[in-house]
């Protein structure tokens, strides 16, 4: 994973360095060192602790109904976790909706355990000193797809609709800066400061991005789920921030997972 990222940096760096001289050569040396730094954290990824915690939460009887999540159907049948994350988002008959891993998990916590939606989603991400059950559960569920290929063909009409909606949102320019996702993520070799942004419109680019989430973000000292990643990118695009579990986020995920289909999952990852 680091190798690929490095390669992008080096290739991009080399092309630009020819015209811009040593500042960029310096940049890519720094990027090189930072890749080494992240590699050093990969063994003993702090996200591994959340995975262990999520495993406990999954089987613990909790909520007003004093039930575990072991009967939760993430798309492959009740309690089937292996490979479930890699084939989400997906259309679910019982809710008549395309759901991603987080909306489905919340659905299970509400229906199986008897929590209210508001209760469950109040702490959908962690803050210093305040852990998030959702973060832990998603990290655990994600890791159960490790080594399996992302598989979101989006063949069901509702899924196809979501994927098209996601693609539309990806390219649509709006907001005060007239930004779109594609402005930052639609070309090879684009960078902000030292971050490679990746081309999310190709299988390689989308696969490289999607396969590592949920991911431990070094700069945040926390694990981020894909919902959090995308909601934050909407903020970066200076768009109004959508609500947690909003259809627009699920649509973008469907589009990105469809594009990434075939890429083998490698989560929890380490990101900047």
């Amino acid at each position: 994973m680091m190798f690929q990222r490095l390669l992008v940096t080096l290739v991009g760096g080399a092309v630009l360095a020819a015209s811009a001289g040593s500042a960029l050569a310096q940049d890519s040396k720094v990027a090189d060192e930072l890749a080494k730094y992240r590699d050093a954290l990969a063994d003993g990824n702090p996200a591994d602790l959340l995975e262990v915690k999520g495993e406990g939460l999954w089987s613990e009887k909790r909520g007003p109904k004093n039930a575990s999540l072991e009967q939760c159907d993430l798309g492959l049948g009740p309690g089937k976790l292996e490979g479930a994350y890699a084939q989400l988002p997906k259309y679910f008959k019982d809710t008549n909706k395309v759901m991603d891993v987080e909306s489905r998990l919340v659905h299970c916590m509400v229906t199986l355990q008897g929590f209210t939606q508001a209760d469950v989603t109040k702490q959908w991400y962690s803050k210093p000193g305040k852990e998030s059950d959702i973060e832990a559960l998603v990290t655990f569920i994600g890791a159960k797809s490790n080594g399996m290929p992302i598989n979101v063909p989006a063949t069901h009409p509702e899924e196809a609709k979501m994927a098209r909606m996601g693609e539309y949102i990806f390219y649509r320019r709006s907001g005060p800066q007239d930004f779109s996702c594609s402005i930052c993520h639609g070309q090879e070799g684009k960078r902000i400061r030292l971050q490679d942004l990746g081309n999310l419109t190709t299988k390689e680019g989308a696969g490289f991005a999607m396969k590592t989430w949920p991911s431990y973000r070094v700069s945040q000292g926390a694990v981020w789920t894909m919902q959090r990643r995308l909601i934050d990118c909407m903020r970066q695009a200076r768009w109004p921030e959508p609500n947690y579990l909003a259809d627009s986020i699920v649509a973008l995920e469907t589009y990105l997972q469809k594009t990434a289909t075939g890429t083998v999952m490698d989560t929890p990852g380490i990101e900047r």
């Binding site: 080494k36 730094y37 050093a40 954290l41 702090p46 000292g221 900047r272």
Partner: peptide, 13 residues
């Protein structure tokens, strides 16, 4: 042992 540069001072291997 350790990196030459750490991205986040809160976690330096």
């Amino acid at each position: 042992t350790g990196p030459d540069i750490a991205e986040n001072g809160a976690v330096v291997p």
